[in-house]
Amino acid sequence: MSVHLSEHDGLLEITALIGWPQRCVYGALALVPLLAPYELIIGVAWRSYWNPFFVFAAAVSVGALVVSALLMLIALGGRDRRTTIDTKAGRVSFVEWSPVGRDRTRAFPVGALRSFDVRTHGWTDGDSYSLDFHWAGGPSFAVASSLSREEIEGCRATVAAFLQRH
């Protein structure tokens, strides 16, 4: 996910996007598991469907279809985010959208923003980081996420400097 910051006229926009090239890669990867059902079910001339080898091939094919569906869901349903801090209007708004699905919008007063920090998410193949906004008596939101801690720390420093100026 790429993170972009832009500041103009008392607005700070933080945009976190899953790019179209990345979506296309996930879509292409979703086609690869579809070879398993073809090779195991259609490509083989089964004389009888009532044997353990066919049941095993069918189970592998169902698993491959599930993997393919999950990859396509990531490609089409991955949510992009835009957070706008508008100091003139005194509002922070969050908008999430994807190529399929409904847009989600939430807004909070700037004064209700209690803190924002970098959170580390531990994974088996490395860490990822997110910038979280915490609201008084309310939820917290991951505004941006990245594999680079420096990128998220830079976002946090930009937000802190922006809020200090306004």
Rank of each mutant, 00 (worst) to 15 (best):
M1L: 01
S2Y: 13
S2F: 11
V3I: 12
H4P: 00
L5W: 06
S6N: 11
S6L: 06
H8L: 10
G10N: 05
G10W: 04
L11G: 02
L12R: 05
E13P: 01
I14K: 03
G19Y: 03
W20S: 11
W20N: 12
W20I: 10
P21W: 14
Y26F: 15
G27N: 06
L31V: 14
L31W: 05
V32Y: 03
V32M: 02
L34Q: 09
A36R: 02
P37S: 10
P37D: 05
Y38H: 12
Y38N: 08
E39M: 07
I41T: 03
G43D: 02
A45S: 13
R47H: 13
R47A: 11
Y49E: 08
W50Y: 12
W50T: 13
F53Q: 10
F54A: 09
F56Q: 12
A57F: 10
A58I: 06
A59T: 15
A59K: 11
A59H: 08
V60W: 05
S61Y: 07
V67L: 13
S68R: 01
L71F: 12
M72K: 04
L73V: 08
I74M: 06
A75S: 11
A75N: 06
L76K: 07
L76V: 13
G77Y: 01
R79K: 15
D80I: 00
T84E: 08
I85F: 09
D86W: 04
T87Y: 00
K88P: 03
K88W: 05
S93T: 13
S93C: 05
F94Y: 13
V95C: 00
V95K: 10
E96L: 00
E96W: 08
P99Q: 05
P99D: 01
V100I: 15
G101F: 03
R104F: 02
F108W: 14
P109D: 15
P109Y: 06
V110Y: 00
V110P: 00
G111M: 03
G111C: 03
A112M: 09
F116P: 00
D117C: 02
D117Q: 07
V118N: 02
V118H: 02
R119M: 02
H121I: 10
T124I: 12
D125G: 07
D125P: 01
G126N: 09
G126W: 04
G126T: 08
D127Q: 12
S128C: 07
Y129Q: 04
D132A: 11
D132C: 09
H134S: 14
H134F: 15
W135Y: 15
W135H: 06
W135A: 08
A136Q: 13
G138L: 10
P139H: 08
F141Q: 07
A142D: 14
S146H: 10
S146R: 03
R149W: 07
R149T: 03
R149V: 09
E150H: 12
E151A: 11
C155A: 15
T158D: 02
A160T: 14
A160W: 07
L163S: 13
Q164H: 12
R165T: 12
